[in-house]
Design a protein around this nucleic acid. Structure first.
Lengths: 254, 254
DNA sequence: CGATTCGTTGACATGCTTCAAACTTCGTGG
DNA sequence: CCACGAAGTTTGAAGCATGTCAACGAATCG
């Protein structure tokens, strides 16, 4: 609970590199105030009303890059919050193919899909060195936080619906623009730069997530750069025309 | 609560038309035992422990075809269970386009996506004359049914993930086969025929749901018929080679 | 320093969309 | 009950966006 207290009190504000080059955003740490868990982080909610707060802080230690937070079929015993770094959520279809379901940034909640019987319904792996808070499921129905939980799952459903919208209705340009704009928006809402992004995932992962071939991802980004929309070099992306990017992104679910 | 009791006690077993022609599956009624809500219908759970059971039965009356159960932005005050008929869930993107998110059959739960602040995050409309059970949200955190709720949202997330998998990785054949196979499986699990389906949604809705043009849906179904896989006439579908249909469907999320 | 992974670019093939038109079914009012 | 119009479904032809195959350069790692 020493670690726990540090977590809750942590006054560290997001730091922005103001250099001309692309801002290095990861790995980094956020305070509980900017947590995804709608107004007053769920972590805090649970912690304040729970008797054994040390359980919550358990797996708070750093996780190396490309290590699993959990795997499909694992016991479903906790929700997770990204504290630093970034996470890829994915599943393996019954023909052995991977499908990326989403990426999670600091402050965002993941690992809500699972049941006591089936266990985890997806896997989660770090894209870089990361830290993660785990919230034991058992703590849930002790308290009156069902409504909070409902909000969390609702926002996860909204994420998924937005992905469905993209996959069903947008062309490659729309999907990439949408992807970048969404990342920008999410970083900005956490106090980071909206114009300088460092992608923590590979082109392969992006393509898989957006239902596009890697080559299409690469070509589209190149074309975006040629039109002055963005500047891209490997994982570093500068957004030069956010408004136009949004136009190309087109439809949103919210 | 007269209606309510009828609901709970209802001994009506699914009736199958055994004629050579395609089975007319809708509208029809199910008993609470076959409800989607994991082992012991959520309706019953709520009813047994609630003081004012009449509130739950409120909107139990039949709804005419093409009428809304709720709309995006409406107050998020209840979950819903299909009792008879069928429901289409959809959202309108900010450019005014519709995106179908799913179809719900008797016994299945829908309307889980919403929050107190944003309200409903999708709309639900009947595809035919239907009846629906509503479970007031307020009843939720009174009882210890948070875990049940978690299971419901998890299975909704799994549905969405399966849709994502289809949209991102399957061609038209795979999507249509997957769509038909899934419908067949769901009907069968409720005691209806797995081989004779009466589609309650239009080609337009199917195409929208699967991210395909109506023409592609029509052409693909015709081709399926020519290969002896199915027999299709308007909304009536007979599945002649379920196993092969599953092969074409390919990858599943579970 | 070599090997491997990752990203980019080009040429070609193709599955799906779009556009157009005809037919069928259904609802509505005469 | 029939007539008419609207909506739903099917089919054909053509264009195009994206996938596939292949090769190369760049960065990373042991």
């Amino acid at each position: 609970m020493a670690a726990l207290n540090k977590v809750r009190i942590e006054p560290v504000a997001p730091v922005q590199t103001k250099s001309a080059s692309v801002t290095r955003l990861s790995p980094q740490t956020v305070s509980c105030q900017v947590c995804d868990a709608m107004g007053g982080c769920l972590v805090e909610q649970v912690l304040h009303s729970h008797k054994q707060p040390d359980r919550t802080s358990k797996s708070n230690r750093g996780i190396k890059a490309s290590e699993h937070v959990f795997r499909e079929g694992d016991d479903f015993n906790s929700f997770c919050v990204v504290r630093s770094g970034s996470i890829k959520s994915y599943l393996i279809s019954n023909d052995g193919e991977e499908q990326v379901l989403g990426f999670y940034l600091p402050g965002e909640v993941f690992g809500l899909d699972g049941s006591a019987i089936q266990g985890r319904m997806s896997s989660a792996i770090t894209l870089e060195t990361s830290t993660v808070c785990r919230l034991p499921i058992e703590d849930i129905d002790d308290n009156g936080i069902s409504k909070q939980l409902l909000n969390l799952t609702a926002s996860q459903l909204q994420r998924d619906h937005n992905l469905v919208l993209m996959l069903a209705r947008k062309d490659a340009d729309g999907r990439l623009a949408s992807f970048l704009f969404d990342l920008s928006r999410r970083y900005k809402s956490r106090g980071y730069s909206a114009e300088a992004i460092n992608l923590s995932m590979s082109r392969q992962d992006i393509g898989n997530y957006l239902g596009l071939a890697v080559e299409t991802v690469s070509r589209t980004l190149t074309r975006f750069q040629e039109s002055g929309l963005i500047k891209v070099h490997r994982r570093a992306v500068e957004i030069h025309d956010l408004k136009n990017l949004q136009n190309i992104a087109g439809a949103q679910a919210w």
